[in-house]
Simulated scan of single mutants.
Amino acid sequence: MTQERQASLKGNPITLVGPQLQVGDKAPDFTLNKSLVDTVSLADYGGKIKLISVVPSIDTGVCDAQTRRFNEEAAKLGENVAVLTVSVDLPFAQARWCGAAGIDNVVLLSDYKSNEFGQAYGVLIKELRLDMRAIFVIDANDTIQYVEVLGEMTEHPNYEAAVEAVRALQ
């Protein structure tokens, strides 16, 4: 049975598919595209603290601002922290955006092929096949230590709380 819950886009209802992950849960594994052919999984970041910033589309204002903000924060967090941005944008679009924006501390990963990440992390938007804006902080043992899944897609996440959750693990 598929789990579903409601959120909104500019006040209009949308449906999130997948589990509602909680602090203390084991982080689900995933396969995401780094390019059209190269993939990564949770294990590729083993032993590191992971800050996973999920955005619906990198080419929108809030997603752009969110990724730029975490790129700035990533520079201060050190080598033991992997900052990942996940969207369903094609890897080509992600690479183009990173080049234009000068993003070099965040790894952009694409959930475009199967929406596996979105379903496993409970952020897949059923009606749009995009991933809902969310933040997950996962410790070096792959246990979730911080979760924020926004109820309204157009709002910004709590950047300070997410960064503080990472710092508490260092």
Rank of each mutant, 00 (worst) to 15 (best):
Q3H: 08
Q3F: 06
Q3T: 09
E4N: 04
L9H: 03
L9K: 10
K10E: 14
K10H: 15
G11M: 13
N12Q: 14
V17G: 02
G18D: 00
G18P: 02
G18F: 01
G18W: 09
P19A: 12
Q20G: 07
Q20Y: 15
L21G: 00
L21Q: 05
L21E: 11
Q22T: 04
G24A: 00
G24L: 06
K26A: 09
K26I: 04
A27K: 01
P28M: 06
D29E: 13
F30V: 03
F30N: 03
T31G: 08
L32A: 01
L32Y: 00
V37D: 14
D38G: 00
S41R: 13
L42G: 02
A43F: 08
G46Q: 15
G46I: 06
G47R: 00
G47H: 07
I49Y: 07
K50E: 05
K50L: 07
K50Q: 10
I52A: 01
I52S: 04
S53A: 14
S53D: 12
P56S: 02
P56N: 08
I58Q: 14
I58P: 08
D59I: 00
T60H: 09
T60R: 01
G61F: 13
V62R: 05
V62E: 14
T67L: 13
E72Y: 04
E73L: 03
A74T: 01
L77K: 12
E79H: 15
E79R: 15
V83I: 01
V83S: 02
L84R: 01
T85A: 14
S87F: 00
S87M: 09
V88A: 14
V88L: 14
P91G: 08
F92V: 11
R96E: 13
R96C: 09
G99F: 09
A100V: 13
A100K: 15
A101W: 15
G102C: 13
G102H: 08
D104Q: 12
V107R: 14
L108R: 14
L109F: 05
D111K: 10
D111T: 04
Y112A: 14
Y112V: 13
F117D: 03
G118S: 12
Q119D: 08
A120L: 10
G122Y: 04
V123H: 04
L124Q: 12
L124I: 10
I125P: 11
K126H: 08
R129V: 12
L130E: 01
D131Y: 12
D131C: 15
R133G: 07
I135C: 08
I135E: 10
I138R: 07
I138K: 01
A140Y: 02
N141H: 09
N141V: 00
I144K: 05
V147A: 08
E148L: 02
M153L: 13
M153H: 09
T154Y: 06
P157S: 04
P157D: 10
Y159P: 12
Y159C: 01
A162P: 05
V163T: 04
E164C: 11
A165S: 03
R167E: 11
Q170D: 05
Q170F: 11
